[in-house]
Design a protein around this nucleic acid. Structure first.
Lengths: 208, 208
DNA sequence: GTCTATAGTAGGATAGAC
DNA sequence: GTCTATCCTACTATAGAC
């Protein structure tokens, strides 16, 4: 990967973070990268390809950077904790909501949509592994589709990232309330075997 | 409200739904509205104002249209049901994710950000009323900040709307898993007074 | 209120010198 | 690989006729 190609990828993330998808252009990206505008097309052929590549690489990097922390997660509250740390770190780095911006841009098919779906899947896979591990013995696993739950968690996280952009206090409050809720989930999950058996039988009755 | 002003508002929603925020321009909106491009500026002064107005009005309309259904909700599963119906109806109408598109566009302050925050608040207020009612006697109310929870629900819903755009099957699966999860919540919520008291005391212990 | 016309600007993309 | 220069298109916004 030549220096310029990489600078263009970095520049893409910079612009997405600083101005959002509406601020993206070959010129704005090249300016952020400190290179000539024509090089966007020389190296990537089109803006779409550059955007898609930047999204894919950035997501791969972030997922890899957080893989260890995901592996160490041993409760739902910790999973939320990792999510909040991730959120805070991205905020500081200015890389906020790159995925969210790409999602908005990719609502109508095409390369951007495909790439964004793949990028989200990288996160979903990580979350799914964690949920599999955490919920294996839980009543939750009896009734809920874990891969579906992982998708819900990823989508919800992206929604909060976007919400943060227009209402930081509201987003913090939302995350705090989820943390409080996670306490309840853990308490339920730590019920003794007797209560748990009662719970499972009730679940069976309701879902039958 | 003159006919043309209204047509421009409708046209704005059409373009946002069909092409997303990146497809928005005075020309594309005027074309969708079937009016002259210059009228955008005659009636609204700028694109930003038109976008903000359209978002505000559209959200007001949708919230008003669903107010009755929200009032009738008597369980978390029903709340989710209303959300899914809303989601499906907007999908069919092509009005999908107008709020999500505006959120993406409003990530960096300005009129769009303010208007979007206000629009989301309209949904949050409705959700909060429902949660207040549903969770009044629940252990959840003991520990969780209901307004915060309402914000989390609204943000998560928007995230799923966006996810739907790039992965419809994934989004459906996510919503289905939440429905399954809601069963668990209801079962817990319907525990007898004895079990509930035990739960509350455990919660006190954990949160102390 | 609505139209045409247009000034001025920004952006995608390419050609060709170096 | 990188640069300048440029073409062409699309956009915002305004002026002025009707």
């Amino acid at each position: 990967m030549t220096d310029t190609k990489q600078r263009l990828l970095d520049g893409t993330l910079t612009v997405l973070g600083a101005q959002g998808i509406t601020g993206v252009s070959a010129r704005s990206i090249a300016a952020a990268a400190g290179v000539n505008q024509a090089l966007v097309f020389y190296h990537y052929g089109s803006l779409d390809v550059l955007l898609a590549t930047a999204c894919r690489e950035a997501t791969r990097d972030r997922v890899a950077a957080y893989a260890e922390r995901f592996e160490a997660v041993s409760s739902l509250r910790e999973l939320l904790r990792v999510g909040r740390d991730l959120h805070a770190a991205e905020l500081r780095a200015g890389n906020v909501s790159v995925l969210a911006q790409m999602l908005a841009a990719g609502q109508h098919g095409g390369r951007i949509a495909d790439t964004t779906a793949e990028a989200i899947q990288l996160w979903v896979d990580e979350i799914e592994k964690v949920l599999d591990r955490l919920l294996a013995d839980s009543p939750v696993a009896e009734i809920a589709d874990i891969p579906g739950l992982a998708r819900a968690v990823a989508a919800a996280f992206i929604g909060v990232e976007l919400y943060e952009g227009v209402n930081p206090e509201g987003a913090d409050r939302a995350l705090a309330s989820l943390d409080q809720l996670a306490v309840l989930v853990e308490v339920v999950d730590e019920l003794g075997p007797l209560a748990r058996r009662a719970l499972k039988s009730r679940i069976k009755k309701v879902t039958r």
